[in-house]
Write a protein that binds this DNA or RNA. Structure first.
Length: 516
RNA sequence: GGGCGCGUAGCUCAAUUGGCAGAGCAACUGACUCUUAAUCAGUAGGUUGAAGGUUCGAUUCCUUCCGCGCUCACCA
């Protein structure tokens, strides 16, 4: 703390000395001829002789990540775009003034150098510097050069330092960017148009979750941060936007965990005249393409596993089949499909399962379909490492999807799982306003029963459906989770630049900062 | 919210059974015109997360609190 402040003051004084040498302390621009990655790729393979005739003059800028001074000469490494280039500074070439400036530089400072390329005795491509231009001072010390920044909390809190020090982190976020690009390109090329719908909503609908509450002052109105864009996007299909998508944040007021951050990014899209099977195919293609675009192939390391995103590796099971398939031996003989038919038979399944592994919560008053969905999560989810589509979901947990024609307790809905996570959710959209009204009413009963997350009534949405919504398939894809799988990240915080954290200790730290 | 674990210099980590709080890097001073974890000599840097307790003596043991991580529950 005190030391940190000392360094800060010392470096401020160095900055004044740098000004005294005739350098601007915070200049406005620097004209480079090359970026460091350009130099490395264009000249990385050239021999000493090739670099000598003709001589290659360069101007290049970067942040000092290593610096070594040996009396009247020195070496440093400049970092730009995650790559490093060595520079060689000697008094004969930069003059008295240049060497004085070099002596005032610290790890973390930004400089620009002009000079020519050469190879050192050990063969490293370097810039033989003729002129140094000071660009910006690092007043706070960077973490230790060898171990870098490893403290997990500091990495999230001070992501800027994390990005400077850890190249893999930079790589993860470049891949995340490519992922979003891939999704956009895929949707655009399939005739979808991108839209933005409200993030602040008077009724938080379209998903089952507890919302964040906020308030609009001049309207004196309670607003919710959206938990899903669903109901607005479907209003747009009513309006004739037959293929729409949105990539944006949802906010859910829930606990945090390796798969959960309170704000997370979803790709959500709707395709008119399609049913759940068509959008299932589309989403499978979307994800396979994303794996290729982000990683260059379909086989992607994820921890101990290798996930194969190629089309032939995808599995499809109904929810009921999956429970049979992964029923644990310890819980006795596998159930039969008929065991899902009645409340009592499902209750017996739960009892058998809980005797073997007593950790599934069970409320005998909840709808049977909800129990089956919970049973699925308890029995199956941990087994789904390779891309798997689970389809046919209980009506009770699917208030917005169409019923199966032949089984009205089940819906035309699927979810995609991989890496033990739910990645995507899609269904044939319910577009019958009267059915929708009774589903909402059913949810209101759940709410009265104490389920805070049950859906609220949305009269305007029902009015929109009453104008006639075309048949449509709709899909949501969890962008953060896909990013995790494609970057071998095992917590969602590693794919979110600034994950939600408790604020820093206010008293001490604020006092400290005001000193700086 | 429950369980487990962690918190020591700016960073990464030590400290024997409870016995003088240390190292490397970073920083400062000096030497050094091909180094790359540069090297060499020296200097400085700490309320051991906080409060309380046990003890002649606590970084170490106990209690409470704070923060972080992992995990379980709710959720995608």
């Amino acid at each position: 703390m005190a030391l940190d402040e000392n360094i800060y003051q010392l470096r401020r004084e160095k900055l004044k000395k740098i000004e005294a040498l005739g350098q601007e302390s915070y200049p406005r621009r620097y004209h480079s001829t090359h970026t460091i990655p350009q130099i490395l790729s264009q000249y990385g393979q050239k021999t000493t002789e090739q670099l000598e005739s003709p001589r290659v003059n360069v101007r290049v800028a970067g942040r000092i990540m290593a610096i070594r001074l040996m009396g009247k000469a020195g070496f440093a490494h400049l970092q730009q775009a995650g790559q490093r280039l060595q520079i060689y500074v000697k008094k004969d070439a930069v003059g008295e003034n240049g060497l004085e400036l070099y002596k005032l530089l610290d790890l973390g400072d930004h400089i620009g150098v002009s000079g020519y390329l050469f190879r050192t005795r050990t063969g490293e491509l370097s810039v033989h510097v003729e002129e140094i231009t000071f660009l910006s001072k690092d007043l706070l010390p960077l973490p230790e050069k060898w171990h870098g920044l490893t403290d997990v909390e500091l990495r999230y809190r001070q992501r800027y330092v994390d990005l400077i020090m850890n190249r893999e982190v930079r790589e993860v976020f470049l891949k995340r960017s490519r992922l979003v690009q891939s999704f956009r390109h895929f949707m655009d090329s399939h005739g979808f148009i991108e839209v933005e719908t409200p993030m602040m909503q008077p009724i938080a609908g379209g998903a089952v979750a507890r919302p964040f509450i906020t308030h609009h002052k001049s309207l004196d109105m309670k607003l919710y941060l959206r938990i899903a864009p669903e109901l607005y996007l479907k209003r747009l299909t009513v309006g004739g936007l037959d293929r729409v998508y949105e990539i944006n944040r949802n906010f859910r007021n829930e606990g945090l965990g390796w798969r959960w951050n309170p704000e997370f990014t979803m790709l959500e899209f709707y395709q008119a005249y399609a049913d759940y099977r068509e959008v299932m195919e589309l989403t499978q293609n979307l994800l396979t393409q994303a794996a290729i675009d982000v990683t260059g192939g379909t086989r992607v390391k994820f921890g101990e596993h290798e996930i194969d995103w190629s089309q032939s590796n995808w599995q499809r099971l109904t929810m009921r089949q999956a429970i049979l398939e992964y029923w644990p031996e310890a819980a006795g003989t596998k159930p039969q499909l008929s065991d899902f038919a009645t409340h009592d038979s499902v209750r017996i399944l739960v009892q058998r399962f809980n005797q073997a592994r007593p950790h599934m919560a069970y409320d005998p008053n909840e709808p049977t379909g909800k129990t089956i969905a919970n049973l699925f999560e308890a029995v199956v989810e941990e087994h789904l490492v390779q891309p798997t589509i689970i389809y046919e979901f209980p009506l009770a947990v699917s208030p917005l999807s169409k019923k199966k024609a032949d089984e009205p307790d089940w819906t035309e809905r699927w979810e995609i799982f991989a890496g033990q996570m739910e990645l995507s959710n899609g269904f044939s959209e319910l577009n019958d306003p009267e059915d929708q009204r009774s589903r909402f009413e059913q949810q209101l009963k759940e709410r009265e029963r104490g389920d805070e997350e049950a859906h609220q009534m949305d009269e305007d949405y029902i009015r929109a459906l009453s104008y006639g919504m075309p048949p449509a398939g709709g899909v949501g894809v969890g962008v953060d989770r896909v990013a995790m799988l494609l970057t071998d990240s095992h917590t969602i915080r590693d794919v979110i630049l600034f994950p939600l954290l408790r604020p820093e200790r206010p008293a001490e730290d604020a006092a400290e900062r005001s000193l700086l």
